[in-house]
Amino acid sequence: MGKRLSGKVAIVTGGNRGIGRAIAERLADEGAAVVIGDLLGAGAAGTVEGLVLSQLDVTKEGSIRAFVDDVLKKFGRIDILVNNAGIVIHKSIDEQTADDWDRLMAVNLRGPFLMAKYIAPEMRRNGSGAIVNIGSVEAFMVNPWHTAYAATKAGVHGLTLGLAVDLGPDGIRCNTVCPGWIDTDLNRAYVEMHPDRSLIERELGQLHPVGRIGSPSEVANAVLWLASEDSSFVSGEMISVDGARTKKISLPAILDEEYRAKLTTLTA
């Protein structure tokens, strides 16, 4: 195991489960002291070396200020920020309320803005820093009933561009990782709702040219690269971790099946 982040202090919002947890553990594996900011309170993070769990509500400016102050009191610096906290609401535009819209905006977009606002000055004092936002392929393509969610993730991509331009002169880089379908507890529960789970899993895999869905660790590896000096000249980028799903033009099912059959014959 390498130690590319030795001596660094990293923050991962919403990092006590799912993709966020995988990111936090990967950064800790590489030597970073990782502070997880989460609504869940004290819990499992304390069982992993290098992880600290602290209460954080990214929708409240006062909570963010107190959280940042606490991290600085404990560690004296902040080098890496991963804005991972996010929520999704499955509703048609007719069913969505203004409160639904405001809630998604507060967590998914206002939260990353405020985190960057209060942490950037600390990175500036260090002369360097890396901000990694967790966006989504749904800023490029959208699932039904995800209008508000897609709008927030497109906003995150715009925020990334602005931060990369404004903070670049201070030695601070900002990029976004855009996960596709990842095998998280949340997505697994969605799949398990269907009576033919094996069919759903097979069809989900076929949406991706690589032939399968992704794992949280694969998203975490991309975040690690962007947080480390290995990507020192990369800023303002939206990097998809989606098995090329967003690069494949959709075909009618029958044509797609014929293509796969021909490909299998050619490679047999």
Rank of each mutant, 00 (worst) to 15 (best):
G2D: 01
L5Q: 10
L5S: 09
L5G: 09
L5T: 10
S6D: 14
K8L: 15
K8Q: 15
I11S: 02
V12W: 08
T13R: 01
G18C: 04
I19Y: 04
G20F: 08
R21K: 15
R21S: 14
R26F: 07
L27V: 15
E30G: 11
E30F: 07
A32F: 05
A32K: 02
A33V: 14
A33S: 15
V34W: 07
V34F: 11
L39M: 14
A42N: 14
T47V: 09
V48Q: 06
L51Q: 03
V58E: 00
T59S: 03
K60N: 15
I64C: 05
R65P: 01
A66V: 04
A66S: 12
D70K: 07
K73R: 13
K73N: 07
K73V: 09
F75K: 02
G76V: 11
G76Q: 07
V82D: 06
A85G: 13
G86S: 07
G86I: 06
I87V: 15
S92Y: 06
I93A: 10
D94M: 11
Q96N: 09
Q96H: 05
D99A: 15
D100C: 12
W101K: 04
D102G: 11
A106R: 12
N108V: 08
R110L: 01
K117D: 04
A120F: 01
P121R: 03
M123Y: 03
N126E: 14
S128G: 03
N133G: 06
S136E: 01
P144M: 06
W145C: 07
T152P: 02
G155Q: 08
G158F: 01
L167Q: 10
P169V: 06
P169G: 04
I172E: 02
L186W: 06
N187L: 13
Y190D: 11
V191L: 02
E192I: 10
M193A: 12
H194A: 05
H194Q: 11
E201N: 06
R202Q: 12
H208Y: 10
R212G: 13
P216A: 07
S217E: 15
A222M: 15
V223C: 09
V223D: 02
D230P: 12
D230E: 15
G236M: 10
G236P: 14
E237C: 04
S240Y: 06
S240N: 14
G243P: 13
G243H: 09
R245V: 03
K247E: 07
K247S: 13
I249K: 04
I254L: 11
I254R: 10
A261V: 05
A261M: 07
K262L: 10
L266Y: 01
